[in-house]
């Protein structure tokens, strides 16, 4: 399943990461939501970003998607320093985001949502047929049973809405994907579909930041796991080097596995 072996932490990377966040700071008023976080993402790799509520994982991802530019810090794409001032910049760099809220305009239909902000036009007018055609193709890949291309997405089921949001992210040849809680609102069958999709995208060489509460999802899908605690990065670990208990320790206590005591580990397990 894994075509390319991702770089290990601590080992000098042989290849250039798609995305690198360096020393990112974000503050809301006086509250430091993200304080000096550094992360990277390689092609064909899934990096799980985990942490408790308010750990800063969503805020960190929003700096990358352009929704909230960082107060300080640097972002590199393919080794080049870039400025991401708004969502348009991020998309232009091939960074797509699937938000936890899905960020769909409920009153518009699926094609309008997939192409929102990037409409296909001909003779200066919207080419709805072309957009519908492309949408049918991309959603067909995700969910062959999807039929309602002309109804407002408000009337679609949770899974169908998710498909629309994912279609929007993958249709434009993304190189890096940010998925914020992609399965939180889904049933088991739909969750399995999303998992299959993530593996498929990975095999196509797309890098994915997977933000999730569900530690099992993350262990299931990621190569590396970055843990955040109170706005800071506790550490990034290779999935194969740690146990779920150790990662839970990082999430709950904010300590890297090496600093966890036996007693603390036992409590976590209990």
């Amino acid at each position: 399943m894994l075509i390319q072996k991702p770089a290990m932490p601590g080992v000098a990377p042989q290849r250039v990461p798609i995305v690198e966040l360096r020393n990112i700071h974000v503050a809301f008023g006086g509250v430091r939501a993200v304080a000096g976080v550094t992360l990277d993402l390689y092609p064909g790799e899934v990096v799980g970003v985990v942490g408790g509520n308010g750990a800063g994982k969503t805020t960190l991802m929003r700096t990358l998607s352009g929704a909230r530019p960082p107060d300080s810090g640097q972002i590199f794409v393919n080794g080049q320093p870039v400025t991401i001032g708004n969502p348009r910049d991020a998309k232009a760099l091939g960074i797509e985001t699937i938000y936890q809220t899905l960020a769909l305009a409920d009153n518009l239909d699926a094609p309008a949502n997939v192409f929102l902000g990037r409409e296909v036009t001909s003779a200066a007018t919207l080419n709805d047929a072309a957009m519908e055609s492309a949408t049918r193709k991309v959603i067909g890949r995700l969910n062959p049973n999807f039929k309602n291309f002309k109804t407002p997405v408000l009337r679609l089921s949770g899974g169908q809405r998710q498909a629309v949001a994912i279609a929007r992210a993958i249709h434009f040849n993304a190189r890096a994907l940010i998925m914020d809680e992609p399965t939180a609102a889904l049933g088991p069958a739909e969750t399995a579909q999303v998992h299959a999709l993530i593996r498929q995208l990975k095999s196509e060489g797309i890098g994915i930041f997977l933000v999730s509460h569900d530690i099992h999802d993350v262990f299931d899908l990621s190569e590396r796991i970055s843990v955040m605690y109170h706005g800071k990065l506790v550490g990034t670990v290779n999935k194969n080097d740690v146990t779920t208990d150790e990662v839970l320790g990082m999430i709950i206590l904010g300590k890297p596995p090496t600093k966890l005591t036996q007693q603390e580990l036992a409590e976590l397990h209990g």
Partner: peptide, 17 residues
């Protein structure tokens, strides 16, 4: 299209660029 998108979900419209 943007007017309707903003009316449907202003945040989504902004996040769509």
């Amino acid at each position: 299209r943007y007017v309707y998108a903003i009316g449907g979900n202003p945040d989504a419209a902004a996040l769509a660029g």
